[in-house]
């Protein structure tokens, strides 16, 4: 299964959701949805699940989508029991698992190549709707179900390694610029100030 094809299939379903991409497909997602002010590019591994969970808890009426990778989830695996315990019903997590650290230039295997089953780990942490998919039709079915359903969704998409992200257009917007675009979007759509303090 191809990660870009999966990401493209999500695009028509993006309306007012808040989307936190980790490093997996960050440039591809950013390019596909460049008009969506609700994207928050983090640019680091091991943080998207936590930040997305905080958004989901802070804005329980908004749908939050986290786009993760195997290496990044493994770096902060303690997120899974916390997700299972708090069970935010407005959070959907997609983990693109290519079993590789493909950002490393030489593509070393991650622990999922040796048998770690992230969907099974998630289920054992109490995330009951955790599924693994291996083809595009299954991904479309599970992703659309997770996006339309009220409840914590966790979809592990087993994908082949591709190097297309290296050809993708890279945004030059600094992370801070990206943050304020996101914050102004929240303020516009929620009708409240995000940051406090005098001007």
């Amino acid at each position: 299964m191809n990660r870009s094809a999966c990401l493209e299939s999500l695009v028509p379903h993006i309306t007012d959701q808040l989307v936190v991409p980790s490093v997996s497909g960050q440039w591809i997602w950013g390019h596909l949805t460049k008009e969506h002010d609700g994207n928050l590019l983090l640019g680091s591994m091991g943080n998207a699940l936590g930040v997305g969970l905080g958004m989901a808890l802070g804005l329980p009426h908004r749908k939050v989508i986290v786009i993760e990778s195997d290496g990044s989830v493994l770096l902060s695996l303690f997120n899974l029991p916390t997700l299972g315990a708090l069970k935010p019903d407005n959070l959907v997590v997609f983990v693109f698992d290519n079993e590789k650290y493909s950002g490393s230039r030489i593509s070393r295997p991650s622990a999922t190549a040796a048998g770690t089953d992230l969907a099974a780990v998630a289920r054992d942490c109490g995330i009951s709707h955790a599924v693994e998919v291996r083809d595009l039709d299954s991904f479309k079915r599970e992703s659309q179900g997770a996006l339309s359903r009220q409840g914590l969704g966790f979809v592990v998409a087993k994908v082949e390694e591709t190097l297309e992200h290296r050809q993708a257009e890279r945004s030059t917007a600094d992370l801070t610029e990206n943050k304020y675009r996101f914050v102004r979007y929240i303020e516009r759509t929620e009708g409240k100030a995000v940051f406090r303090g005098r001007g």
């Binding site: 943080n47 905080g54 989901a56 802070g58 929240i186 995000v194």
Partner: peptide, 14 residues
């Protein structure tokens, strides 16, 4: 570690 990241996400939500 996630205590900080989760708090950050909530701060971004106001």
């Amino acid at each position: 570690a996630e205590g900080v990241s989760i708090a950050a996400g909530a701060a971004l939500g106001g």
